[in-house]
Design a protein around this nucleic acid. Structure first.
Lengths: 154, 154
DNA sequence: ATACTGATTGTAATGATTACAATTTGACAC
DNA sequence: GTGTCAAATTGTAATCATTACAATCAGTAT
C-alpha cells in the first residue's frame, strides 16, 4: 500500500503536481475501497473521517487530477453520478464491468477481452483507439443461482 | 418513415401506452436526426418547431418511455448530459460508438463485434448478458487524415 | 523574512433532471 | 353525442451533482 502511494506520488511529481495531505487522504480512501465504485460524494464522506477539514471541491478536483493521470477511471453506469475506479497498476487498458440489473452489483473483469475487436475496428474504420469502455448489463452469477434455487423449491 | 412510426405506435399500444401528438412529434424528431446523438434539451428545441406548446418535462418523459421500450438507447459520453440514440429497427443489440477525442465526432458501428466476447463472459463469469455498452475513445479517420496531411506539409 | 505559486476552503452559481399540482385530452360506456 | 375517468401534459419549483469564485493558506525559492 505504501509502495503504491509512493509511486503515485512520483507520478504526480513527474508532472509537477504535489501529493498534499488532502490528496493523500483521498488516494488512501480509494486504495482501501478498491473493489467499490465510489461516487465523488462517497469518497468525500470517507475522506472526511481521516481529514475532517477537507472540502468537497477538493475531492472533486483531486479525482479529476487522478483521472487525468490515469490512476483512476471515471465511469458512469447511467444513474446520475460519476464513479471513480482505481486502475490496476500497470494496466494500459480500462477494465470491463458487469452490472447486475437484478441486485445492482458491479463486478470487474480485468482480462483484456477486446484485443481482436480493436484490431478489427482500427483496420476497418481507420480509428486510432486510445481507450475503451465496455459494460455488460444482465444478471450476475449470484442472482442466477438464487433464482435456480427458488425454482428448485417449486 | 410512416411505417416506422406505425410500428412504434403498435409497440406503444401493445403495452397500453398511447401515441399522443407530443409523443409522435418527439419520435419524428428522433427519426429525422437518426445520425445524431441528441440530448434531451436538443430534442426539446427541435420538437418545439413542430409543436411549440410542448413542455420539457414531456420530452424527458417520452424519451424515458422510449428507452423502456428499447426504441432508443440512453447513452452517456462523459459530458454531463444523457443522449438518446435510436436503435436500428430489429437490432437486438446496442450498437457501438467511436468517440473522437480530437474533434468530438461520434460515429456508430452497427456490426455486432461482441459475439465471441459475450460467449466467453457468459461461460467464464456465469453472467447472463442482456445488453452491452461499448465505446472506443481515440482519433477518428478524419482527424487522422488531417494530421497526416499536415505532417506532409512540413 | 518576503514574495510567489499552487492548493484549499466554504459558498454560491449552474445545469440537468425530476417532482408536483393543476389542467387537458382521449377513449370508452351509455 | 355526452359524461366519466385515467392517463398525459403543462409550467414551475425543487433537487442533485458538479463547477466557478474569491479569499485564505502552505511551502518553496530568493
Amino acid at each position: 500500500m505504501e509502495n503504491r502511494i509512493d509511486r503515485i506520488k512520483k507520478q504526480l511529481h513527474s508532472q509537477s503536481y504535489k501529493l498534499t495531505p488532502q490528496r493523500e487522504a483521498t488516494v488512501r480512501v480509494l486504495l482501501e475501497n478498491e473493489e467499490d465504485h465510489l461516487s465523488a460524494e462517497d469518497v468525500y464522506l470517507l475522506v472526511k473521517d481521516k481529514a475532517p477539514e477537507i472540502g468537497l471541491a477538493t475531492v472533486y478536483r483531486t479525482l479529476e487530477l487522478l483521472t487525468e493521470l490515469k490512476v483512476v477511471d471515471k465511469i458512469n453506469f447511467g444513474d446520475g453520478v460519476s464513479r471513480y475506479d482505481l486502475r490496476k497498476e500497470g494496466a494500459d487498458h480500462f477494465h470491463h464491468h458487469l452490472v447486475c440489473m437484478e441486485c445492482g452489483a458491479v463486478d470487474e473483469i480485468q482480462d483484456d477481452l477486446l484485443g481482436d475487436v480493436e484490431k478489427v475496428v482500427e483496420r476497418d474504420w481507420h480509428f486510432q483507439i486510445k481507450d475503451h469502455r465496455l459494460t455488460f448489463h444482465g444478471i450476475c452469477y449470484r442472482c442466477v443461482e438464487k433464482k435456480e434455487k427458488e425454482n428448485g423449491d417449486q
